[in-house]
Design a protein around this nucleic acid. Structure first.
Lengths: 189, 189
DNA sequence: GTAATAAATGAACAGTCGTTCAAAATGAGC
DNA sequence: GCTCATTTTGAACGACTGTTCATTTATTAC
């Protein structure tokens, strides 16, 4: 009976997301995804390979979340607001309020894990590009002042999203993230 | 000949800051601080103990940097601006553009390292409190509108600082941090 | 210079790490 | 039911982990 690859990757993603790359041992993974080492290595090559796959899965889920936001809101800006709101407060039982890609960039080094680090950076850039597209639409529709630069705005939004998720992690349960979201969007205009 | 404790802690801080807690082995530390295991354990107890000491050293350095900014600028708001500018761009050969405390909060878990995690959170809160004090002064002096809430502003600033440093790490060399700093301060008013 | 005290050493420990691979279990085709 | 190919297993490997402690080296006091 072959393993359900999707299911395995999702479980691995949650574990890596929670504990980080270095603190997650192959034995931890073996328990969580219920596979023996031989099978894991036959499927994914090595720990790095499995981790890279989880990074892509995580980023894909992010992109599809954003797409859902676009489809369920009236304007590009509303879609962005909803996406960011969901990213920080959306599912309370997420392994971590921090972005998994940011966590990875935080713990990986150019010397020790250049491939995984570059992959994380690239995936993060992909999400920022999706922000840029939406902000461009917002300007075209007149939802945003035409003087605004969508790329610069996307960069700023990405930075604040990274910050807010990290801040929420650092102050779990003691702070009103809603209030901070208001502050964040009120300085878009 | 007793070791220079200050020097040892500084070297350990830089290594932990660069590689993170988990990826830094005691043998890495032994090389960098040029001490044999027995001496390290006699001085600091265990790896956690040494790490905690470096966290405090790092936060202390941050606080004294802020104090220097206060002393070399005309107004509280200028001091804050200078501090944040320096934190992100100040010393280009810092081990990491991310905040060491944020990196630590990112990689540590309540389950595995509760003490180190709490210490990091607490130190970060200390810095935010210093922000609050300065912003309170700014309101008192009329540098900021009296309608602004210093605590809320400090929270917002802290979040953005965390975000900006993480963003700078994720986009090393490809982005104008100066521009982003402008955006960041222009939405204070 | 010698004895007593303090500091530094590094080989060694038990445990865990990522990874391998011969053997066992399973599935497919007839 | 038998055969062949695929998949899964888990004991085992060498390397590395954080840590200890008997021994050596350095410092102090007389």
């Amino acid at each position: 009976m072959k393993y359900d690859r999707q299911d395995v990757i999702e479980k691995a993603t949650n574990l890596f997301w929670e504990k980080g790359f270095h603190a997650t041992s192959m034995r931890n993974l073996q328990e969580v995804i219920d596979m023996r080492p031989g099978s894991i290595y036959a499927c994914f090559g090595c720990k790095d390979g499995l981790f890279k796959e989880t990074l892509r899965y995580y980023a894909d889920k992010g992109r599809s979340n954003l797409q859902t936001c676009v489809e369920t809101t009236a304007t590009p800006l509303d879609a962005l607001k909803l996406f960011i709101h969901n990213a920080v407060l959306g599912n309370p039982d997420a392994p971590n309020s921090m972005c998994m890609l940011v966590k990875s960039i935080s713990e990986l080094t150019e010397n020790d894990n250049p491939e995984l680090l570059d992959e994380s950076k690239q995936l993060l850039r992909g999400i920022e590009n999706a922000f840029t597209d939406l902000l461009t639409q917002a300007v075209e529709r007149g939802e945003l002042d035409a003087s605004k630069d969508p790329r610069r705005l996307a960069r700023f939004l990405q930075m604040q999203l990274m910050g807010l998720r990290a801040y929420a992690q650092a102050n779990k349960g003691t702070v009103s993230v809603e209030e901070m979201l208001d502050d964040m969007f009120s300085c878009l205009h």
